[in-house]
Write a protein that binds this DNA or RNA. Structure first.
Length: 566
DNA sequence: GCCGTTTTCGGCCCGACTGTTTTCAGTCG
């Protein structure tokens, strides 16, 4: 038997993933089977998120197909990459495509088709030229804001990720720190701990007997991390997932000070300790500050929950010991925004009701899409009448949970609602949302929403701004006018808890709550398991400073139904 | 190329509307 050739040095997961992503890019530029392209992309993503070294696993002859998105084909490609340092198919492709296409292999987040389209129209042939045109604003002018954002995202080095995607990554790194790096204690800090919606840096505070050794061990995460910097008590790395990782050392006696100082936000710390001198004194003095309470106490403050540390009014409230008692997952009594197979959901009404009951909910509102939203299987008037009768029958049989009759009703371009009034009147409440004509001007878009709220059957405004995090900014609205109108009309808002929406933002949710309007924290679930997105919505609600009294679906059913009446 | 409560093939959403189009790509959930 001939021994396989052995590559000189081990490859990091980042390097391996880069090759798979490169394959995807070139296949895409060549117009290959889109599902094959997606398979390579997905596998690259999986590997980028992995703590274990692919290189080590290949050499140990481990079964790689146990990872999602890696089958026989890609597993053998990985073997080839690790053992020979090359991927034959990729080299072959690189040799056959023009240089401007080959170059795209290094930019896995750029869509080759869009890039080549731009090249053709602009008469350019390279990424540097593309960057230059982007800076001049020519891309935006010629192809619109969306293309511009796509190119920008694809060209920047570090890419932010959704908090809900960063959480499992953080958990994996925390395990690695505790199990493989001899950390005595390791906890997330920074913006992630404050539950900011997107993450561009993961940060940890660690307690360890030997920081240099811990840093050395951590550098082996994911088969090897690029080190961006290090000193005696901190270190920074580049993670394969595109974000950075920061580690701060703290002894047990100073754990609290370090947590306060690293959790931030900058604004919060600045307001708390303008010169930064007091925190530094606590950090370097002899008095132990093992927990955050002791630190805030030293400042004459009550402990501020991390979610509130944004430099709003939290310090004033902490001084008076009047911080809000923030809403928790356990306070939620039901779901008010959920889809079923009637439109674009995955489960039937009965199955969703079962999933809601498993979560001990008192009620579940069924809000399938309305008739105009064809792509999402919008429900016809006739079918919604049928659904109303079906839910009545289900409620007679079910115990322990009440299914509420509702709909996610499209707000049409002119501000009218997507069903006639007699049908809307037969529902317990409505969630009304914009799903079309995002590009109306601010004034027109605002009028559209105000007019919709004038309909007496309008109950809750769904995902108020239409933003998609890291993708789309959403439509323009005069939000203050919308709030004032909602208040006058007796309408509510939702915090849509889909991890890529989180809309209302914490800032907007704060404004709504200040106007005395209750907010529903809704998941927009399209599957039973998506009811658990509630945790993301609760993060937003807490960042907005909401107590349970301010949250619509913390109400028991009878009070909820009364609140719905306008 | 991956995957399997339709498991070794065949699906992997997708369908109507918008735009400042110029004959189709992009966009909404």
């Amino acid at each position: 038997m001939v021994a396989p050739p052995v590559a000189s040095s081990p490859l990091t997961n980042a390097e391996i993933a880069q090759r798979l992503a490169g394959m995807a890019q070139l296949l895409s530029a060549q117009g290959e089977n889109p599902y094959k392209i997606r398979a390579y992309r997905r596998a690259a993503e999986t590997i980028r998120g992995l703590g274990e070294s692919i290189d080590e696993q290949v050499r140990a002859d481990a079964d790689l197909t146990r990872y999602a998105g890696i089958g026989k084909g890609i597993a053998s490609a990985l073997r080839e990459i690790v053992l020979s340092g090359k991927l034959g198919q990729l080299e072959l492709l690189m040799a056959t495509v023009p240089p401007e296409v080959a170059e795209l292999g290094d930019y896995p987040r750029l869509d080759p088709k869009r890039v080549l389209q731009a090249y053709k129209k602009l008469g350019i042939h390279s990424v540097p030229e593309l960057k230059a045109r982007l800076e001049k604003g020519e891309i935006g002018k010629m192809f619109g804001a969306r293309m511009e954002q796509h190119f920008r995202n694809g060209l920047i080095e570090t890419q932010a990720m959704l908090l809900d995607d960063a959480d499992p990554l953080a958990a994996s790194i925390q395990r690695f720190l505790l199990e493989r790096c001899a950390a005595i204690r390791a906890e997330t800090t920074g913006s992630t701990r404050r539950r900011e919606e997107t993450v561009s840096e993961l940060a940890f505070v660690v307690e360890t007997l030997g920081f240099p050794k811990l840093v050395e061990s951590l550098a082996r995460y994911g088969g090897g991390l690029k080190r961006l910097g290090a000193d005696e008590t901190s270190a920074r790395f580049q993670l394969p997932a595109g974000i950075t990782l920061r580690i701060e050392a703290a002894p047990a006696s100073k754990w609290g000070v370090t947590m306060v100082a690293t959790t931030g936000s900058e604004r919060h710390l600045e307001m708390m300790d303008p010169a930064g001198a007091r925190l530094a004194r606590l950090a370097h003095g002899k008095t132990p500050y093992p927990d955050e309470s002791s630190v805030y106490h030293a400042f004459g403050l009550a402990l501020v929950p991390p979610e509130l540390r944004e430099g709003n009014d939290e310090l004033e409230l902490a001084r008076r010991d009047a911080l809000p008692k923030l809403v928790t997952l356990e306070d939620i009594r039901g779901e008010l925004h959920a889809h079923t197979t009637s439109s674009d959901g995955a489960l039937s009404i009965a199955e969703m009701a079962e999933a809601a009951r498993e979560r001990s909910y008192e009620y579940l509102g069924i809000t399938d899409h309305s008739q105009s939203l064809k792509i999402a299987g919008g429900v016809s008037e006739e079918d919604l009448w049928k659904q109303i009768r079906l839910i009545d029958r289900l409620n007679e049989k079910l115990s322990g949970i009440r299914i509420l009759k509702s709909s996610e009703v499209d707000i049409l371009a002119d501000g009218s609602l997507d069903y006639p009034d007699d049908l809307l009147a037969a529902l317990d409440y409505t969630v009304c949302s914009i799903h079309s004509r995002f590009h109306l001007g601010k004034a027109e878009q605002t009028e559209r929403v105000l007019r919709a709220m004038d309909n007496p059957h309008f109950t809750i405004l769904g995902h108020a701004t239409g933003r998609l995090l890291l993708k789309r900014t959403g439509y323009e609205l005069d939000f203050e006018r919308v709030i004032a109108h909602a208040r006058a009309a007796g309408c509510f808002f939702e915090i849509n808890a889909s991890p890529d929406r989180l809309d209302l933002s914490p800032q907007n949710a704060r404004l709504v709550a200040q106007a005395g309007i209750r907010i529903a924290v809704c998941t927009d679930a399209h599957h039973g398991r998506e009811l658990d997105y509630l945790r993301c919505g609760i993060d937003v609600a807490r960042r907005a400073g909401l107590e349970k009294q301010a949250v619509l679906n913390c109400l028991p059913l009878p009070r909820l139904l009364r609140a719905f009446r306008r």
